[in-house]
Design a protein around this nucleic acid. Structure first.
Lengths: 130, 130
DNA sequence: TTATAAACATACCAATTTAGTATGAGTTAA
DNA sequence: TTAACTCATACTAAATTGGTATGTTTATAA
């Protein structure tokens, strides 16, 4: 059970932007500072933008900035933007004909809830670097 | 972020054995009843045995049985036996030179703790089939 | 008006992990 | 002595991850 590096990279980039808030920074700079492959990060930033977590400006001098105050951005939002909905097992939330007879669904439902509670309670502002 | 089918299969097999406790059942029967590929389940049962969650008897008429009362088996034990230690990110628990400066470690530490608390609080007896 | 630096889009690719299958050896009861 | 088991290991196909490559569009500055 692991989150992928997408989540880790995303948290790093977002924490960097939080420290710089409300300034904007290019993905190239972000990538260099956080040691993330530049083109890969670009794609991740695209997902964050589509989920309205950052704004972007194109063209020379452009870049990304947080779309909201870091206190108003939940860690869970960042992670779900990059990895998709939190669901500890494939069947969770999905239709399953055997569901009513499936003992393990209780585990996945309860666990998914706890993970969401944890990740939505934590805010980006809490991850500020020293 | 997903647990693999190993966890799902393991929970199904263990729940089946719990309903049959303290009886023993062959992996072939378990596999058939729970619709799990037989040889794959055999390997999973091996891991459960190595983690002292089931006992096995070899030879004709042999099979597997819970090694303890279902109330005394935590869901987390089953999952960790099959998937390894719960750690939502590769670096969690591992040595990392950058750790002290890593803002996201706070997320993974807290999340890992919550997941463990949830999965060790739930007991196999709670998953009994209707 | 042209060069440059940036976001944005998409196709491709290698490595790793997952979810098995295949084969066979050892063990016990009938 | 054979059938029904556990147990061990090697192999493999499919999916996922973690990228790279290539190119287009957009804005700024010289």
């Amino acid at each position: 059970m692991r989150f992928s590096s997408k989540a880790e990279y995303g948290l790093k980039a977002m924490t960097n932007l939080a420290a710089y808030y409300p300034g904007q920074k290019s993905s190239t700079d972000l990538a260099q500072e956080e040691e993330i492959p530049s083109k890969y990060l670009e794609r991740l930033m695209g997902k964050l933008r589509k989920n309205a977590l950052v704004t972007s400006t194109k063209g020379k001098g452009g870049g990304y900035a947080l779309s909201r105050n870091p206190q108003a951005i939940a860690i869970g939002e960042i992670i779900e933007a990059l990895e998709g909905p939190i669901a500890p097992m494939r069947c969770v939330g999905a239709f399953c004909a055997k569901r009513k007879n499936c003992p393990s669904s209780k585990v996945w439902d309860e666990l998914g809830l706890q993970i969401r509670v944890t990740l939505y309670r934590m805010k980006l502002s809490e991850l500020a670097k020293k």
